[in-house]
Design a binder for these strands. Sequence first.
DNA 1: GCCGTGATGTCACTGTGTGCCATCAGCGTA
DNA 2: TACGCTGATGGCACACAGTGACATCACGGC
Lengths: 170, 170
Amino acid sequence: MDLFAERGFEATTVAEIAERAGLTKRTFFRYFGDKREVLFAGSEDLRAKFVEAIAAAPADAAPLDAVARGLDAMADLFAEIGDAPRKRQAIIAANPDLQERELVKLVGFAAAGAAALRDRGVAEPAASLAAEAGIAVLRVGFEQWVSGPEGRDIHELLRNSLAELKAVAA
Amino acid sequence: MDLFAERGFEATTVAEIAERAGLTKRTFFRYFGDKREVLFAGSEDLRAKFVEAIAAAPADAAPLDAVARGLDAMADLFAEIGDAPRKRQAIIAANPDLQERELVKLVGFAAAGAAALRDRGVAEPAASLAAEAGIAVLRVGFEQWVSGPEGRDIHELLRNSLAELKAVAA
DNA sequence: GCCGTGATGTCACTGTGTGCCATCAGCGTA
DNA sequence: TACGCTGATGGCACACAGTGACATCACGGC
């Protein structure tokens, strides 16, 4: 993160990252599948929170409301770790390769969320659509959070975004 | 496309593609920003159809209905060129790097669709959400089309997918 | 003291992607 | 015809990502 902030992602070589971390290039690639992955190592936690919250939603909750619980759980995590996500997002915003990887992660969230919904008895394609819609809400709300003024509550932004989606789809 | 179908994307080098096309590696990279891009060259047309149809929707159409027009226009193009998209999708499905690039293209569609909606007077974040939701519908419907039996009508799949989204968001 | 086992280092190598310069065809102009 | 300009291409050389193969080393069990 330090190196990326100093020189940018592209201008930082894996050898330099490895040296800073006290290991070799080869060992770096044993821990991370590729150079980008080092910035997304924490995303499994996020996905886990998301699916757990969906699974834990009341049995009679509608699919999209279960997804809303998942989004709320993600927001908890964001709020918890302060503005680290914002710094990280600035690095990602400056590099197309990283944006690609982020999209992959988000689609992975959608797939995991859809699976969690199916476990709740939601049929396809409703499960996938509810999960994809939830990720759309996340994208839009998160974008407002990182690009807007500091201190705004990410929970509220996501809730508003979801309400807006419901209004649009009505 | 021939080379990718024979040996797979990864096992095909840019030098081989260039040779087959009668030019050099260097020239290939002047036409395509990277190796993956050669598979996505036609996507600008698709995006253009999408935004044109949104712009051409009746002035009183709801945002999501304007997006539905856009999806219909894309379906026209898919149906027109037969099963080439299915072959292409098989290549993409076999390679994570290509999937990443496809997501980027889809998100680009969403952004272009959102801009078209804003031109129609739709405010944010409704415009982005409607466009993102439309792309979710496209992903789910297209996935059914390529993975399901041959001969199904992509228009119908997309319409059903959209109806399902509306039901889920109700 | 010996033997796995897992983590790490070292080395060589392929392939992507880029910068730099040479070449060449076409085209307008004197 | 000769000249110079321009745009497209080829031909290098290179940095860097990522991988396979092998060596090394620390460790714990026996």
